[in-house]
Design a protein around this nucleic acid. Structure first.
Lengths: 144, 144
DNA sequence: ATTTTAACTGAAAATTATTTTCAATTATTT
DNA sequence: AAATAATTGAAAATAATTTTCAGTTAAAAT
């Protein structure tokens, strides 16, 4: 379920948006980091490494645009900043160690089932969700 | 599983913290708003209404302290600020309308089960989680 | 191909949320 | 009642994000 540039181009243009080089570069970086949700600042740093000139403001704007058209998910690690990751259609849940900050990703998921029941029960049309677990990783449990 | 002032006092003192009037007032406000996660600013406004003089800094510090001792949960609605709610031991999941901003709470929960399996699988010790659903409420679905 | 136009960009300024600092105060222990 | 270590709050600092606006550019129209 990975997104291709062609598909992305279609998605962008069909909504009256333009496919700019900046948007392309940002998308590529998110694809390269598919297992690692990035902050806007993080995306910006990687853009700079790949030498392209893209402003931080544009990074913020592009991430929000990508979220709106369903290409990325919004993730929170309770550390004071937003993170974004490519939406590959798979569940994307995290285990965040409150001690060392390590982040593990898990695919285990009851959420789809839960979402369907919720939609029936509440008449909400659910388009996104965000689930993170906080606690202590196996190493920090020993260290404490 | 509601928290009493006595229990709170014990929890605070046993860890070497002091039970100050400010902490008491903030706790009371969180209890009064048990179904409605508040931002630090939101807590601060309510403190002011009830006439008590408590600084915003103290609100921030107290909320973080309460989270550390397990009295409140940390919640995110992807709107740029942190929210806190009393931890009553029950699941606390939200449906947030991306259009009108309405927040519904649901008790439906597979999370406990998921958490147990995750702990076994990953050797993580999970102490908190945060789950929110985003989408469109029944009214906004029609309006769009 | 050229023109047109509405969308887009980026630097700087503004805003908002949160954290730090530090001197004065206060809850609890002795 | 005195000692002490934690706590408070105002102000300053920091960090994340948004807004503004003049100049640029992708894509539609000619």
């Amino acid at each position: 379920m990975d997104i291709s540039i062609d598909e992305f181009t279609r998605k962008i243009r069909s909504r009256g948006y333009k496919l700019t080089p900046q948007r392309r570069v940002i998308l590529e970086i998110l694809i390269k980091n598919k297992d690692n949700p990035l902050t806007p600042e993080g995306v910006y740093k990687q853009v700079k490494i790949s030498c392209s000139e893209v402003g931080l403001t544009t990074v913020y704007r592009t991430l929000e645009l990508l979220r709106k058209i369903g290409v990325v998910n919004h993730v929170h690690f309770h550390d004071g900043c937003d993170r974004y990751e490519i939406n590959d259609g798979k569940p994307h849940h995290y285990l965040i160690c409150l001690n060392c900050g390590k982040v593990e990703r898990t695919n285990l998921c009851f959420i789809d089932k839960m979402q369907k029941i919720l939609e029936k029960d509440t008449a909400f049309k659910i388009t996104e969700h965000c689930l993170s677990f906080f606690g202590y990783c196996r190493f920090c449990q020993l260290r404490k």
